[in-house]
Each structure stands twice: as structure tokens, then as C-alpha cells.
Write a protein that binds this DNA or RNA. Structure first.
Lengths: 352, 352
DNA sequence: CTGAAAGCGCTTACAG
DNA sequence: CTGAAAGCGCTTACAG
């Protein structure tokens, strides 16, 4: 293996100088710098990042945390179930951004060992953590909120002494979805989303309420259904809804996520209901699958790129500020959402 | 930070002894071991893995490589496009298995820097690499095949001096799909898959041929269509197919992947064709989405867990054998596939 | 601007 | 069975 020692020898300087040149210190003469660079190229030298991490007491590695409630689950295991394709799309951006910033992304094997979670991260000398907490009260989330490790939560509203979050404007998104339906003439609008997990559901419910209130429509709590954030549960919940209510009693559904909407479409379809002829459906997220559902899904787009860019850039600022955070650095980042109109929404049925 | 020094002091031994106890050396007295263990617990000590990596010249980290052809793409960016949900499901298992073996999973930020790819991995002291090569001739794949880093390729047929692969029995899968259709009475069966990329497509085409030959059916090369491995291209290819041929000229399609099949279903649907009334469709992979397509998709299940378990266990054996491979260690692992019958296949239409 | 020296936290022959 | 010492490949005050 080529070490800095060999580079130093070839360039006729000490290892200290090589190190300085490598790290862009101004205290290196032009000639020395030049010789060192040549030596690096001719030897194909690349610094040993492990040694660097040890001496700097910090690696260029960002850990990914994904807390799904199930304490034993690893990061991706929480994510690649059908219901979480949205997060997957998000992870793609995460990796991209982190790579662009020259950090490695680490999926530590200790996600489940909550007790020593923080310590394990420390022993790996991770520079920071990017966390997605789908479950509100995971012990690891708590630990992270109190730890010194710079952390940005994506899509879950957690703030701590070294942590903050980025999220979509969930309330406004649901407001747009609902207003869109109101403009199409709908008055009896069902909403289907999780009423609890992670405070996201309630925010979206609030947006729904807000839209109705704005136009003076009554809020019928009975139209607010709940289910888990996945295709299957949404499917089941819709079957239930269809047992309880006859068509025309409602003409549209605002759904908590696109993948849930797929379950909704399936249930409607099974009952011989047409979308949007009988019932209009709006999703949330704008997963790329939306274009291939039958019919293609009107939805609220979350600007994933903006979320992730915001998260990663903030995280890196936090890391590089060495724990000296000013106010602005711990302020949450809220990303606007917008309506994408496709074929699953239409005018309210005539007869109603 | 708690170091081994402090543990040693508290236990009244030297750091060397602590290290031995930690690493399960037999050359530690029972009493010493006991005192050390107590000290570890009471101090909450955990070894510094970075320091360990440096001195051992090897970390407990496995790098993930995903080579998509596009040289600049990072690991997940290649994977989370719609067409690769299958790989995502696979990654879930990868992380799980690797975590179970107490290794961390690393997505290095250098995937695009092909030149120094190997060197970068070495400088990170990765123990091994798990690679998914969707593109046949990526430079990094070549480099990996010649490097000393233990590597297992998943789903791409590469063998090198320190590398081997695991894959499904692709040919047999396509054979099962085709035979299933033949048993339902189909005679004019279209196949739609990539004829080139990664040798997987051709293997599946071979399975298709094999099934026809077994029952003495003629092979009509004109029925063998090709497209990229994604929903959109499969959709387009099917539109083309429907321009060229009238229904009844073919009554079934064996598709290269489930996500492609979604595009196929959409195109058929758009032309007013019923599945399976007019055309039967079989996918490949058994992504969990299959249950929610309209109609639910008959497909060939790849046993992802078995693939990943095979890959990870082999990789770890390779790592722990320290470069001393016997024959069996570099032998490819082939995993059986099987037909999952759902609603997208049925008897050949009466009138044909 | 530069080098010698100390040190990051561990492991591992070596000697006892 | 145990400890003193060297060493993994870097960085960084310190002194010049």
C-alpha cells in the first residue's frame, strides 16, 4: 500500500508537509506542493481514510437511521416494504447529495441495539446522522435528540440540542388536495390517513379541515377515516367505508399517500365504482408509480430533492461548524408542496 | 470517551489483556476475564472500531456496489427508479443479512470515480464488496474482478480471482412461465425482455425456447420482442406490438420483469384488451406490487432471501478465509425459481 | 515554510 | 497467562 511516507520520500519532504499539502494548508511552498502533487500522481497515492478518521476523531461518514418502531429492523428493511417506496425515492437523493459532499453513507449494523446506539455511532466516528423516524417514540430517536451527534430528521418533527428536521408543508398539501376537489364541485369528501403516527397525519388532516372551513363547508368528523400508511390497510379501510356508506354519500377521497391510494383504487374498483366517474381520489407524495395506476393518480407532490438537499446541506453545515450552532442552524426547514392533476379526479357526479 | 486504557486500569490489568479478553483469546485467566467484563459493563465501554480497523488493516464493513452503466450514478440512484424496485427489495435483505453478521454496510461516495474505485475501497479498508452489476461492462466491474477484494455479484454473471456470483435460475423460470401458458392452451406466445443486458435476458429467452421445444411447438423469432427493463419502455414496446399484430395473432406474453409487466398491462388496457380474457400475461420477480395490479399478476418468483443469504454468507466465508479460497468458494450459486399463479393468466380465448 | 515528535485507540509478536 | 513495546497511517501543536 502506498503511504504518505513514500510520497514524502519521493517528493523530498516530510510526512507533515505532505499532510499539509493534502489538506490544503497555506503553509506549504509552491515548489514543495508541486513536487508532492507529482509524487501523489506517480505513485497513485490516496490517503488512508481510516487513519485520518482515527487521528481526527471524526470520519467522513454519515450514518443513516431509520426508525420504524419495530426495534429490530434495520434501515432498509423498514423502507422497502411496498408502503415505503416514497422513502426509497428519498434515499436515492440522500445518497446522491451525500456523495456530492464527499461523505460516505453508512448503514450501521447496530440499528437494533438501541441501548448502545449512540455509543456505537461514536465508536464509528460518524460525522453526523440523517434520520427518518416513522415511529414517534423510538428510544433511539430520544437518544439522538440528546446526543452531541449532528442530526437532521427527514419528515419527522424532532428537534434537539444537535438536531433539527426538514419536512414538506403537509398541512398546505392536504389543503390543496381538498380545495382541488371542492373546486370540482365535491362537498362530501372523505379523508383517509393515519391520525397518529409522527404528527404528519394530523397535519394533513388539519389541511383538510382548513380547506373546508375556508369555503364554509361543514366538517363531518365521520368522514375522516384512518388507516396505517400502507396499501393493504388502506384497501381494508376502504372496503369498510364502502360497507358503511352508499356511493353518493361521498364523492371523493383525500388519501394519506400514493401507495395507500393504490389500495383505495383497488377497493373501489372491486365494488364496481368508477374513478373519477363515481369517486375522485387524490394521493400524496407523487411517487413515480402514480402515472401507471388505473387511472393515473392526481396527487400532492412532495419535493423530495428539495427536502433532501435541505437536509444534507444543513447537516454538513452542522458538522463543519463543530458543534457551534447558531439559532438559524437548528431551525426546521419546511418545503412547499403542490398539486399534480392527473386522471383520478373529476367533477362531482351529476346525480348527487 | 471510554478507552481500553480505562478498562485496563479498573480491572487491574494491561491494555493487552483487555484486548485479548475482548477478542476471545484463550490466553486470559478466568479471574482477569471476569474483572475485565465487569469493568466494561460498569464503564459502558465499547471498542473504537476505527482504531481496530487501522491496526487490523481491515474493517467490519462491506461496501455495496451497484453499477448501472451510467458511470456517475451512486448506488441507490440506480436502484430506486421504478424499474428497479426488485433490487430494492433485495437490498433490504442484504442489509439484514449483513447486520446479522455484524458487519456495517457502506455506500461509498466514490462510486463514480471509476479510476480509483478499487483504491478507494482499499483506503476504506472494506472487508468485501457486494455488487449488483446491471450494466455488463462497467470499468469498475472489471477492476473488481481483478482486485483482491472479496466480492460476490448478485444477479450478474461475473467471476474473478476473488469474486463469484449468485443468481436465480433464470432459464428455468422462463421455462416454467412458458409451460404454464402452454398448459392453458396458448400456442402463440410473445416474449418481451431485454435481449442483451447482463446475459439475464438471453437466459430467460432460452427458457422460453426450451418450453416450446419440449412440446414440439415451433419457435417464431418474430414473437420475441425486446425492450429495456422498465415500465415505460415495456409500455412503448407493447404499443408497437399492438400496432403490428392483431389480437388473436398472439394470446399471451411472457414479460421480463414485473415492472415491465405493469407497462404491458397498461398498453393492453388502453387498447381495450382484457387480461386474461384476451391476453394472458406473466411477469418475473414477484415484486410485492404484483398483488395490486389489475388484475393481480401471475409471475415467476425469485427467492430473494435465498439469493441474498447465499451471497452474504459466501462473502463472509471469503472474507474470513483471508484470501485462501478453495474451489468451492468461488463456485457460482444458483437459486431455484417458481411460478406464482394469480389472475393475469387464463385459458386461451375460445375463438382462437 | 518545514520537520521531529507525540499521539489517535487499538492489536500483536516478543519475552517472560 | 501477562505486560512492555512497537506499530497501523495519519495529523498537529511546537519549535525553528
Amino acid at each position: 500500500m502506498v503511504t504518505s511516507e513514500q510520497v514524502a520520500r519521493l517528493a523530498g519532504v516530510s510526512r507533515a508537509t505532505v499532510s499539509r499539502a493534502l489538506n490544503g494548508s497555506p503553509r506549504v511552498s509552491a515548489e514543495a506542493r508541486k513536487r508532492i502533487e507529482e509524487a501523489i500522481v506517480s505513485l497513485g497515492y490516496e490517503p488512508d481514510v481510516v487513519a485520518q478518521s482515527l487521528v481526527r476523531q471524526r470520519s467522513r461518514t454519515i450514518a443513516l437511521g431509520l426508525f420504524y418502531g419495530d426495534q429490530k429492523s434495520t434501515v432498509l428493511s423498514s423502507i422497502s416494504k411496498t408502503q415505503h417506496y416514497f422513502y426509497l425515492d428519498l434515499l436515492r437523493d440522500v445518497e446522491q447529495e451525500i456523495a456530492a459532499a464527499q461523505y460516505d453513507l453508512l448503514l450501521p449494523s447496530i440499528s437494533y441495539a438501541q441501548k448502545n446506539y449512540i455509543r456505537s455511532l461514536q465508536m464509528r466516528h460518524v460525522a453526523g446522522t440523517l434520520a427518518i423516524a416513522m415511529h414517534p417514540a423510538d428510544e433511539r430517536v430520544r437518544a439522538l435528540l440528546e446526543a452531541e451527534i449532528p442530526t437532521v430528521f427527514i419528515d419527522s418533527l424532532n428537534q434537539g440540542k444537535s438536531s433539527t428536521y426538514v419536512t414538506s408543508d403537509n398541512q398546505d398539501g392536504a389543503r390543496q388536495a381538498t380545495e382541488h376537489l371542492i373546486q370540482l364541485g365535491h362537498r362530501r369528501i372523505v379523508t383517509l390517513m393515519s391520525g397518529t403516527a409522527g404528527r404528519i397525519g394530523p397535519l394533513r388532516q388539519a389541511g383538510y379541515r382548513q380547506a373546508l372551513q375556508r369555503v364554509g363547508l361543514p366538517i363531518d368528523e365521520d368522514l375522516m377515516y384512518t388507516s396505517g400508511w400502507n396499501t393493504e390497510e388502506a384497501y381494508q379501510a376502504t372496503l369498510l367505508l364502502l360497507q358503511e356508506r352508499r356511493p353518493r354519500d361521498f364523492t371523493a377521497i383525500v388519501v394519506g399517500s400514493d401507495l395507500m391510494a393504490i389500495g383505495v383504487l383497488r377497493a373501489l374498483h372491486q365494488h364496481g365504482l368508477h374513478v373519477p366517474g363515481d369517486v375522485s381520489v387524490v394521493g400524496f407524495d407523487d411517487v413515480d408509480l402514480c402515472r401507471y395506476t388505473e387511472p393515473p393518480l392526481t396527487t400532492i407532490r412532495q419535493d423530495r430533492s428539495a427536502m433532501v438537499q435541505g437536509a444534507v446541506q444543513r447537516l454538513i453545515r452542522m458538522i463543519e461548524s463543530d458543534g457551534e450552532y447558531d439559532e438559524s442552524m437548528l431551525a426546521p426547514i419546511i418545503i412547499p408542496t403542490r398539486l399534480i392533476t392527473r386522471a383520478s379526479t373529476g367533477p362531482v357526479p351529476e346525480s348527487s
